[in-house]
Amino acid sequence: MINELKKEIEKAKTCFLEDLNIIQSSKELIQIKDNYLSRKKGIVTEFMKQIKNLSAEDKPLAGKLINEFKVEVEKQLNLIHDRLSYGKKNEIDYSLPAFDIPVGSPHLLSIVRTALENIFLEMGYEITHGPEVETEYNNFTALNMQEGHPARNEQDTFFIKGYSDIILRTHTSPVQIRYMENHQPPIKIISPGKAFRKDEPDATHTPVFSQIEGLLVDKGIHFSHLKGTLELFIKSFFGQNVSLRFRPGYFPFTEPSAEVDISCYLCNGSNPECRICKGTGWLEILGSGMVHPRVLENCNIDPEKYSGFAFGMGIERIAMLKYGISDIRMFYDNDLRFLKQFG
């Protein structure tokens, strides 16, 4: 019995495939659908009726075979229905809204850091990293801030309990020390990363912040190379119309040193109430200078043979200027209302 049913189903399958070929209109489609799937006299229904005549053990298999056939018929007929109705007017309101697919964002600091890194990578700099827990030597002493140096800001420094000389780095400059100790010039690196200072959080301070610093050491490097490099960088990031201003400054690890301002990219000094530059026309953006000969000596690089420049900037500061953010704490609140605006 079951074998006969099997044969019949096979036969019906063959017929069905032939029938499919003749369908040219929805009228024919409805007719064929009726032939096979009509509840009263459809072929599938006819098969079902035969089940009751089968032995108990054959019943499940028969059911399965018939069902497979039914599924196949439905699937093929639906495909044809779709093909026939394609391009024709139908009842669906395609103006119904799209579904919300969850989408996230990188952190703004990652976005800005990546953009800054990309500029320097294009200029041929290598990215280097170092630990956040550092020695006082790498963080201060090697950078020409001996113990007791007035610029060695110990009250701003986090110390690690149980160690006399281990701290959280206060800038990413120790990465440069580590690199110089192990490489001879030419050296062309940037060191992005976190830095830590013991500041109570307020609108312009957080105890954790991010920096990106650059270092280039080679023969014949001079101060105008620094200006050229920074100008190229600033214009690439803030736009061609932004200009650069060097001011004398002081950092223990550079000589000469320069504070660098950029012209306000928003108002260019024309708006006394500008929300970005507060009417001054200039924005303090980074610190820089020629690497102090003592720093080179500390890393076994001969300052008579080589010279170099270094620069450093706060990534939050750059992001705040570029995006008009007024409170640095927002970077570390991780409020989605902030995070989702960028990236």
Binding site: G124, Y125, E126, P186, K188, L216, D218, I221, H222, F223, S224, H225, K227, G228, T229, E231, L232, R245, F246, R247, P248, E255, P256, S257, A258, M290, H292, P293
Partner: peptide, 27 residues
């Protein structure tokens, strides 16, 4: 040292008179 002398000189001469050059250093 002599680097400090350069800072003294250009500080007075004018940081705004520095030119922009791109170093030729390649890695």
């Amino acid at each position: 040292g002599k680097q400090d002398m350069v800072e003294e000189i250009i500080r007075v001469y004018g940081y705004d008179r520095l030119t922009s050059e791109i170093p030729k250093t390649t890695s």
